[in-house]
Design a protein around this nucleic acid. Structure first.
Lengths: 230, 230
DNA sequence: AAACGTAATTATGAATTCATAACTCAGTCA
DNA sequence: TGACTGAGTTATGAATTCATAATTACGTTT
């Protein structure tokens, strides 16, 4: 028989992990904020047990921090964390780029080409929202093309952590243009199925993003953690 | 004041995550086996709540698999998982190697030299147990030298998953000699603080380990998942 | 005897309860 | 005024309870 791999019926805690992680990544729960266990239980209509289970896994993923007998707080997005996270993502993207070219099928390439075109359109229209979405989809598709769920999983978690920082650093015009150029090169190498080159470009692309983020952070908060004085 | 960073009093679920993960990695809980919730509660002297919390995070780490209404089973170590995991570890080790040379201080180098010597002694004495431990310590120290907790954390999790496979593949004499040679090169590059070269070697070292594991697996189970016939 | 159906049992997910640590905020004293 | 104290309140970690899905055991039918 076997109509489906496994019936998709998520348990409460699985559902909650997804939802809470989104709240954190989408900045609905602000860094440093105490996670309001009670409120969330009521608004989700669940008891504390599954919610606390979800918080435990979110903590292991680094989205919240647990303090014994003092509950959970949303993890801060620190400069140090970004400094550490980007290089790891870059390494994973490099690997993904190398592997993607081995397995990519025509439909996948077509889908990526399409999204790439939409991203260019969003750039032309200066539509940051749509640009981010298209950009994210492209990276995700490239990672997926590597056919490595372990890689995909770790990348997804790290990418989510970095995505939280988009509220801190606004894309500069220069960086935006540079990113577009990098994506053009990526598409070129992808069409040629040149994995090594694609990997190198994706790594550099990510390290440039890293640099841009750090520069933007410097502009806002030069002393890296000092309290800003107004 | 501040005598300690933070008082080290792990909550039950944290303690349980560590202990259960060790049981899985050390093969006390066998792949595919149902995790005996009740038994473990009794033997650890805790209620189901913290134990189940621990299982949730172990599941997110990939050490157990949860089936709704059907409890937890120890994750299988499949060929496919190994095929996927090794390249990711290799990518992380490459990054670690590159970074380690930037920050390594003399005491750290001395400690690694010491452990390296002990590893050579274990090799000479054909002491697999001690060899594995020294080897593991060296890799861990190199990762730590990169001063990147994110990298360290992800590497630790992946390394633990692969460590489970050591029961499946016995180190061949050839591979052992090759691994020793690779470690000699690593030490050389480390002394020279040649990060790029160290990274390359560590990556290759890991991919060679990967190949050795796969070869050993082939010898035991050529059809990759078929039931072996005796 | 094999296959099916059904009742009893067990195991699991989730809610609830409970003991205690942490926090709040008057009241006290320097 | 401002720091300290301690009762009262709240929040948290963990145990327990509860409803139900899954499994097992057993009987029935062919």
């Amino acid at each position: 028989m076997n109509l489906m791999e496994t019936i998709k019926r998520p348990t409460l805690h699985e559902e909650l992990v997804e939802r809470l992680r989104n709240l954190v990544v989408e900045d609905a729960l602000k860094p440093g904020e105490k996670v309001p266990e009670k409120e969330l239980c009521e608004s989700f209509g669940v008891s504390r047990t599954p919610l606390r289970e979800a918080l435990k896994v979110l903590a292991s993923e680094g989205f919240v921090v647990l303090h014994a007998n003092r509950g959970a707080r949303v993890a801060e997005v620190t400069r140090e964390e970004l400094e550490n996270t980007f290089p790891v993502i870059a390494a994973l993207e490099q690997l993904a780029g190398e592997q993607a070219c081995n397995y990519l099928d025509p439909e996948e390439l077509a889908a990526i080409e399409g999204r790439h075109a939409e991203m260019l359109a969003a750039y032309a229209a200066r539509d940051r929202q749509e640009y981010f979405h298209a950009n994210q989809d492209i990276h995700q598709a490239l990672i997926r093309a590597a056919r490595n769920p372990i890689l995909e999983n770790h990348h997804k978690l790290l990418a989510a952590r970095v995505r939280r920082a988009r509220f801190m650093a606004n894309l500069s015009e220069d960086r935006w243009a540079q990113a577009i150029a990098e994506h053009e090169s990526m598409m070129e190498k992808l069409r040629q199925r040149d994995g090594k080159a694609l990997g190198r470009i994706m790594k550099r692309h990510m390290m440039n993003k890293h640099a841009a983020h750090m520069k933007a952070l410097d502009a806002v908060d030069p002393a890296s953690g000092d309290t800003p004085d107004p």
